[in-house]
Design a binder for these strands. Structure first.
Lengths: 225, 225
DNA sequence: TTAATTTTTTAGGCAATACTAAATATTATA
DNA sequence: TATAATATTTAGTATTGCCTAAAAAATTAA
């Protein structure tokens, strides 16, 4: 039996080792990195690492980096799956805002019932991506892939569609909401300013200028991707 | 902040003091009664009582009975509300069996989000009764009333409708499922056997004989109640 | 109404999960 | 390479929520 707290550690390890933006292939994670991500002290994390190792969920040698075992990865992905399915449910079935869904899903993801997850999955029509555009691992732990690129790389004159964001902070999501940008929003790149790498865009006949930082964090695909 | 464990104590107190079958008006609850209901030791319960008292959720004097404060009652009813709304959701929206819904709802009832509960309530069309026929307290803690009587009290020849059960054990629910009896099932009382107080009934042209015990635990109302 | 029984409370422990402070190991820098 | 800086581990503490065993109070019964 994996406790709620242990589940959160596994989820954090999955995120830091594979899912965080910019990670190409799996990377090992340090105790302090995990501690700072979870906002806990290293000593606390260290103790938990012992327990996770005893349960064969991670590999960890004294003073070395942490990697997930097969079982740890499988269990971690299960939690990611639940989290993203619940987010999708809250967004599409209960009309929660894009911004509110995360913290409720943080709780719902720990509900222990295989059947419940499968029923929700079916109710949603077996979605591959959540409302943030992130892929939902299937029940076997396979992660659907989709080709996305940063809005910064889109050429002048091209039209693209927002598929995901690489920053999910409240500040960023709120800003996007102000701009009326969400998943599946169509964006036309009108101009690219060489000086500060900012981008002039058009959304439904409204023009905006996005800073380089914002453009970097908007992941887009072809219009019919 | 009320912890998950504290919520379960409050829910148990609401049940034992007001909601358990056969309770007409509120009754005080003893430590040992609560302990045995929660399958915990009296000493454990005793400690928790101190915490609940500190939080002004119960009244409790040494060696005396326990009563809920206004705040304790309100909070307890909130949990009952959530439990019954989730049961209704699982049953009507996800096609869970009558029998499976309880233990999943036991987990879901602790999710902390007012908004989620209200959204689920709306999705369900603001139901007054859950799939077991039990009343769902509204957001102000008011409990809808419905006149029900035991099947044992129905006269020979009368038709009635199952509205609730006073035993929700797995054994009993399974037995009802075998008989194809669920909420809103119509029952015609064909005969009442004085000898053992058993009841001959008809459900959709099928005849059965129910023991006194079973008839006692089936709560019915008039056909159009 | 005293004695036996039951209930409640207290005392002392344990596991999970967090903390601070101190010790130790590793890595980086001068 | 020696030292400074950083990371990790250990040791000791706190809280929640559970336990057993024993003491104290209340209730029941002879």
């Amino acid at each position: 039996m994996i406790s709620l707290t242990e589940e959160n550690y596994l989820k954090a390890l999955i995120y830091l080792s594979s899912l965080a933006p910019g990670i190409e292939k799996k990377r090992d994670v340090s105790t302090s990195e995990l501690a700072s991500y979870l906002k806990l002290k290293s000593s606390t994390v260290n103790e938990m690492l012992k327990r996770l190792k005893d349960k064969n969920l991670i590999n960890h040698e004294k003073y070395k980096k942490i990697t997930l075992t097969h079982s740890g990865e499988r269990n971690g992905l299960k939690i990611v799956r639940r989290h993203r399915l619940w987010e999708t449910f809250l967004f599409t079935k209960l009309d929660f805002d894009w911004i509110e869904i995360h913290e409720v899903a943080e709780q719902l993801e720990h509900i222990k019932s295989e059947k419940l997850v499968e029923k929700i999955d079916r109710l949603l029509g077996y979605p591959s991506f959540d409302p943030h555009g992130d892929p939902i691992p299937n029940k076997h732990g396979n992660i659907p892939q989709r080709i996305t690129k940063s809005l910064s790389t889109v050429k002048k004159g091209e039209t693209c569609m927002v598929l995901a964001v690489s920053d999910t902070s409240k500040d960023f999501l709120n800003y996007l909401e102000d701009l009326d940008i969400s998943i599946r929003t169509e964006i036309v790149v009108i101009d690219k300013i060489a000086y500060d790498k900012s981008v002039k865009i058009k959304i439904k006949h409204e023009q905006y200028s996005l800073s380089r930082e914002v453009a970097d964090n908007l992941l887009v695909g072809g219009k019919f991707n």
